[in-house]
Amino acid sequence: METTILHSDLSVEWMSHKRSKNAFVTTTNGSLSFGTFPKNNAHWPELEIRLKVGFAGFGRTRSGAFGVRHIYEKHSKEIGITCPSQVSGYIQSIITDGATVIVDTVKDENAALVIESKTGLVILRLSKDKTYYDIISAYDRKSHPGTVIAMI
Rank of each mutant, 00 (worst) to 15 (best):
F24S: 02
H144M: 14
L10D: 01
R19F: 06
H144L: 14
A111G: 09
L10Q: 04
I79W: 00
F24C: 09
N29R: 14
S76T: 10
I91M: 06
M151A: 14
T105C: 10
R62P: 03
T100V: 15
S20E: 13
E46W: 04
P84N: 09
V103S: 13
I5M: 08
V101L: 08
N41W: 09
A99I: 07
T119M: 11
F55V: 07
I81L: 00
G54T: 02
Q92R: 04
V12I: 13
A23Y: 00
D140R: 04
N29H: 13
A99V: 02
M1Q: 08
F34C: 04
L10I: 05
D140W: 08
H43Q: 13
H17S: 15
T61E: 11
S11L: 09
E109W: 08
I136S: 00
L124E: 12
V122D: 00
T28M: 05
T36W: 14
D140G: 10
I71C: 11
M15P: 00
H7M: 09
A112P: 01
I115C: 11
H70R: 06
I95P: 04
A99S: 12
H75F: 08
Y72G: 00
I152P: 02
T96I: 15
I115R: 11
G120W: 05
G64E: 05
I95L: 09
S85G: 07
T82R: 14
N40I: 00
P38S: 07
G89N: 10
P145F: 07
D129E: 06
S143P: 01
I49F: 03
D97R: 08
E13F: 05
K21M: 15
G54Q: 03
K52P: 00
A56W: 06
I71D: 12
E73H: 11
R69E: 11
K142T: 14
K107A: 15
I102V: 15
L32Y: 01
L6I: 07
I149Q: 03
K52G: 01
T61G: 12
S63A: 08
V122L: 06
G54S: 05
G54A: 04
G120M: 08
W44T: 07
L6W: 10
A23N: 03
Q92T: 12
T36I: 15
T105W: 12
T147Y: 10
E109D: 13
K21I: 15
I71Y: 07
R62Y: 10
S11W: 01
T26D: 06
T100A: 15
D104C: 05
H7R: 05
I123T: 09
G146Q: 11
N110Y: 14
K21A: 14
Q92S: 10
Y72H: 00
F66L: 15
G54P: 07
L51N: 06
D9W: 12
E46R: 02
T3A: 02
S85L: 02
R60T: 09
I79V: 08
L47Y: 03
I49R: 07
N41L: 13
E109P: 05
F37H: 00
